[in-house]
Design a protein around this nucleic acid. Structure first.
Ligand SMILES: [Mn+2]
Ligand SMILES: [Mn+2]
Ligand SMILES: [Zn+2]
Ligand SMILES: [Zn+2]
Lengths: 138, 138
DNA sequence: ACTTAAATAGGAATTATTCCTATTTAAAAA
DNA sequence: TTTTTAAATAGGAATAATTCCTATTTAAGT
């Protein structure tokens, strides 16, 4: 496991306080959008500029340090890049959960039937998490 | 098959020229974002207001006449609501294809392993379409 | 410590979206 | 067909989101 410092330097990015703070905050939040991230960081980093946020989120996404997560009807969220996974989104409490799901068979199916080479996949299931199912029964 | 007029009226929306033009244009384009839609419609409908577009796209999505399609790294696109399907997006030529893919087994798997009730799914495969695969071989 | 290219802060500019309201219109009633 | 009226629109103002600009600062190599 490498430090943020190393991750940044391996991608030819200077390990600035701002970038490290951004990465720490995203790691802590899991999935977070620009606004929430900015408000969080401002508390302990009052001079941080919004432009710096946007620029770095783009750059770090380009370099695959971050991943942009697009969920239906929501602002783009950012997460640390890790192993591929799908998202379970509770449309009652809003919780976003990561899950590993093997879909190789479906990808094969799609490739063979459609002459399409699949390079990446993006899967979101929306519904009700455990807690919200239970609450609705009451 | 019902006309746009009927679809709108069934949803308690007046069948205005603007709404019908929007639905026709979306049907013709398949998947289209606000800007392109507005530019297209303005050609034959010079007084159309941008606010009217936004308002109607939201309303018609709320009423499930339209569907908002969120693809990674792109502006939200709109399509006519039809049977559920996934999207194949060529990241070379940009083409967006609709495909039916049975994923009931994966949904079951997810529900059983995670205590999560899946109500809707959103699946995008990005890669290379037939044409672009061939061109890259040359 | 010095050097320098890269990055930042702060704010201006641009773009996207929502809001407001006088006027128009779809469609139901007469 | 004409009248009525609630719903919808056009046009523009207001607000929000994002990008751009540049003088100053800073990370990191020497
Ligand atoms: Mn995730
Ligand atoms: Mn589609
Ligand atoms: Zn929940
Ligand atoms: Zn293609």
């Amino acid at each position: 496991m490498s430090s943020y410092q190393e991750i940044l330097q391996n991608n030819n990015l200077k390990a600035t306080h701002q970038r490290i703070a951004i990465l720490e905050a995203i790691d802590h939040a899991g999935h977070i959008d620009v606004d929430k991230l900015f408000k969080n960081l401002r508390k302990h980093f009052p001079t941080l500029a919004l432009g710096t946020m946007y620029r770095n989120l783009s750059e770090m996404s380009d370099k695959h340090i971050l991943l942009e997560v697009t969920l239906p009807g929501q602002k783009v969220k950012y997460e640390l890049k890790k192993e591929p996974h799908i998202h379970l989104v509770c449309n009652w409490c809003g919780k976003i959960e990561d899950r590993i799901l093997d879909i190789e068979d479906k990808i094969k199916e799609c490739e063979e039937e459609n002459d399409f080479t699949v390079l990446d996949s993006n899967i979101v299931f929306t519904g009700l998490c455990k807690k919200c199912q239970d609450q609705k029964k009451v």
